[in-house]
Simulated scan of single mutants.
Amino acid sequence: MDTALVIGGTRFIGRHLVEDLLDHDYDVTIFNRGNHDNPFADREEVTHVEGDRTNDSALEAAATEVDPDAVFDCVAYKPREVRAATDIFADCEAYVFISSGAAYGREEIPKREGETPLHSCTTEQAVDDTEETYGNRKAEGDRAVVAAAERGVRAMSVRPCIVYGPHDYSERLDFWIDRVNRFDRVLVPGDGTNVWHRAYVEDVASALRIVAERGEAGEAYNVGDRRLVTLAESVELIAAELQTDVEIVHAGPHELEAGGLSLEDYVFYREYPHVLSTAKLAALGWESTPLEEAIERAVEDHLESDRDGHEHGPDREDEERVLGILDTL
């Protein structure tokens, strides 16, 4: 394969995917509405086609204009969009849909492709726009990929867990980097041993390309860090990268409640561990970036940005009340 069309391609996962494709000698076209700054505007090797991916006619026009070998769908959030894209790009050598670990509908450790059941998706959920139905819609998109493969389309899915790294506009990891960078004491909910699997963004990008090149039609592939860490270990890794010492202070539900907080107020807290098996992807030759290296790049990017992730955790003033209560115990 020589040419790639990235639907999306300018913000986070798509941005890293474009870089990965360029590093592997693809001619790349990005297709989006142009609502966000284009980091490739001055790159002659990247073509931009403007259009709305929810408009089938615009997508068909892009397919005709670009005639790509591989298509990477970074911004399909409703199953109808996946069904339309797999029809429009049916003759391409590969169509890869970015699904999500949230598509899994049962809690088990680890969640495995083809074994762990997916969420169901009602007609109403399929057209919803809320966070509550995100996993349902991604699961139905996965089923659309399987249906396309049964029609002879080389369509595949990649299921990342929570993605982090440079240019992460979600700012989820930024919350914890900011806490470690600014305070000597970091409040960690629970006992710090909870696990929510995460995926470094450059690894997600390479996974998408590798699946397009080597994956099997109709199959889904999980992607996540090969080394899992607890929330407390994540804080320690960030502190090591920032070359600072922090005191991790644990607070259970009762201590947090005294300060008007709850465990669920904190990003990356999850009562039941969320772990994805990545063995299927690794069998294609994919490798994960060493965790310390991934954290180093994420911290460096955070320090160069104005992100603080404040929306993903309590105000520090509320935490100070909890810390004060703990100090009296």
Score class of each variant (00 low, 15 high):
A4D: 12
G9R: 09
G9N: 11
T10H: 00
V18Q: 13
H24A: 12
Y26N: 07
N32H: 12
R33V: 09
G34N: 05
N35Q: 12
N38I: 13
P39V: 00
A41D: 12
H48W: 10
G51E: 03
D52R: 14
R53C: 14
L59A: 10
D69S: 15
V75S: 14
K78W: 01
R80P: 01
T86C: 13
F97D: 07
Y104H: 14
P110T: 01
P110R: 00
E115S: 05
T116S: 06
P117C: 12
T122A: 13
T123H: 10
E124T: 14
Q125I: 09
T133S: 13
V145T: 02
V146W: 02
M156S: 09
V163Q: 04
E171C: 10
W176Q: 15
I177S: 14
F183H: 15
T193N: 06
V195G: 04
V201K: 08
E202C: 08
D203T: 06
D203F: 04
L208Q: 10
A212S: 04
G218N: 04
G218E: 02
N222W: 10
D225C: 07
T230S: 12
A232E: 09
S234F: 02
L237K: 03
L242I: 09
D245W: 00
V249I: 15
G260K: 05
L263Q: 11
L263G: 11
V267C: 01
V267M: 04
F268Y: 15
P273Y: 05
A279S: 14
A279W: 04
A279P: 07
K280Y: 06
W286R: 11
E287L: 05
I295Q: 02
A298M: 00
D301K: 08
D301E: 07
D301F: 11
L303A: 01
E304G: 15
H310D: 02
E320C: 00
V322D: 04
